[in-house]
Measured scan of single mutants.
Amino acid sequence: VTTYKLVINGKTLKGETTTKAVDAETAEKAFKQYANDNGVDAVWTYDDATKTFTVTEMV
């Protein structure tokens, strides 16, 4: 189990959160659900070296 981080650069929601998951795909599903629940529709990137997902909402 690995800890993954999500950085949110949204128009109305900004911040960071983490989740523990067995792999990046599982973490991504959890983070996308979190973003969807909070109304963030954005572009996703992932950095495997830092285990960090970044979501940037387009203006």
Rank of each mutant, 00 (worst) to 15 (best):
V1S: 08
V1D: 09
V1M: 13
T2L: 10
T2Q: 11
T2M: 11
T2E: 12
T2G: 06
T3P: 02
T3R: 03
T3S: 05
T3Y: 05
T3L: 11
T3G: 02
T3K: 05
Y4L: 01
Y4G: 02
K5M: 06
K5P: 01
K5W: 08
K5N: 05
K5T: 13
L6D: 02
L6C: 12
L6M: 06
V7H: 04
V7N: 03
V7L: 06
V7G: 01
I8W: 14
I8G: 04
I8M: 12
I8Y: 13
I8K: 00
N9M: 12
N9H: 10
N9Q: 06
N9D: 09
G10P: 03
G10A: 13
G10H: 13
K11T: 14
K11R: 12
K11S: 14
T12R: 03
T12G: 13
T12H: 14
T12F: 14
T12D: 12
L13T: 07
L13M: 08
L13G: 13
L13E: 11
L13Y: 15
K14I: 10
K14G: 08
K14Y: 08
K14W: 12
K14A: 10
G15C: 15
G15M: 14
G15N: 08
G15H: 15
G15Q: 13
E16T: 12
E16A: 06
E16Y: 13
T17F: 15
T17V: 10
T17N: 05
T17C: 15
T17W: 15
T17D: 03
T18C: 13
T18F: 14
T18S: 09
T18P: 01
T18A: 05
T19Y: 14
T19A: 07
K20A: 09
K20G: 05
K20Y: 11
K20R: 11
A21I: 03
A21E: 03
A21K: 01
A21R: 02
V22N: 07
V22H: 09
V22L: 08
V22C: 10
V22P: 14
D23A: 02
D23H: 03
D23W: 02
A24F: 14
A24K: 14
A24P: 09
A24R: 14
A24M: 13
E25Y: 10
E25I: 10
E25T: 10
E25S: 09
E25M: 11
T26C: 06
T26F: 03
T26A: 11
T26L: 05
T26H: 09
A27N: 00
A27M: 02
A27V: 02
A27F: 02
A27E: 00
A27G: 00
E28N: 03
E28K: 11
E28L: 14
E28H: 13
E28G: 07
E28Y: 15
E28Q: 11
E28F: 15
E28M: 13
E28W: 15
E28D: 02
E28S: 08
K29N: 06
K29F: 07
K29Y: 07
K29H: 07
K29S: 06
A30Y: 14
A30F: 14
A30C: 13
A30G: 03
A30N: 07
A30L: 14
F31K: 00
F31A: 01
F31M: 02
F31D: 01
F31S: 00
K32C: 05
K32G: 02
K32S: 03
Q33G: 05
Q33I: 10
Q33D: 06
Q33E: 09
Q33S: 07
Y34F: 12
Y34T: 03
Y34C: 08
Y34S: 03
Y34D: 02
A35L: 15
A35R: 05
A35M: 15
A35D: 02
N36H: 14
N36D: 13
N36E: 14
D37L: 15
D37V: 13
D37M: 15
D37N: 10
D37P: 07
D37E: 14
N38Y: 15
N38L: 15
N38E: 10
N38K: 13
N38D: 06
N38G: 06
N38H: 14
G39K: 07
G39C: 12
G39L: 15
V40A: 06
V40M: 11
V40R: 06
V40N: 05
V40W: 14
D41I: 13
D41R: 08
D41Q: 10
D41L: 11
D41N: 13
D41F: 13
D41K: 09
D41E: 13
A42E: 04
A42P: 09
A42Q: 09
A42C: 12
A42L: 13
A42K: 05
V43Y: 10
V43T: 10
V43E: 09
V43D: 07
V43K: 08
V43F: 10
V43I: 12
V43Q: 10
W44M: 10
W44Y: 02
W44I: 04
W44A: 01
T45F: 09
T45G: 04
T45A: 08
T45H: 10
T45W: 06
Y46Q: 00
Y46I: 00
Y46F: 04
Y46T: 00
Y46W: 02
D47N: 08
D47Y: 02
D47H: 04
D47L: 02
D47G: 01
D47W: 01
D47I: 02
D48V: 06
D48R: 04
D48I: 06
D48E: 12
D48S: 10
A49R: 09
A49K: 11
A49C: 08
T50A: 05
T50G: 02
T50W: 02
T50D: 03
K51H: 11
K51N: 06
K51W: 04
T52M: 02
T52L: 02
T52E: 03
T52C: 03
T52W: 01
F53Y: 06
F53P: 00
F53A: 00
T54V: 05
T54E: 04
T54G: 01
T54H: 08
T54M: 06
T54F: 11
T54D: 01
V55S: 03
V55D: 01
V55I: 13
V55H: 03
V55W: 06
T56A: 04
T56H: 08
T56Q: 08
T56F: 07
E57K: 05
E57Y: 09
E57N: 05
E57M: 05
E57A: 05
M58K: 10
M58N: 09
M58Y: 12
V59P: 11
V59A: 11
V59Q: 10
V59E: 14
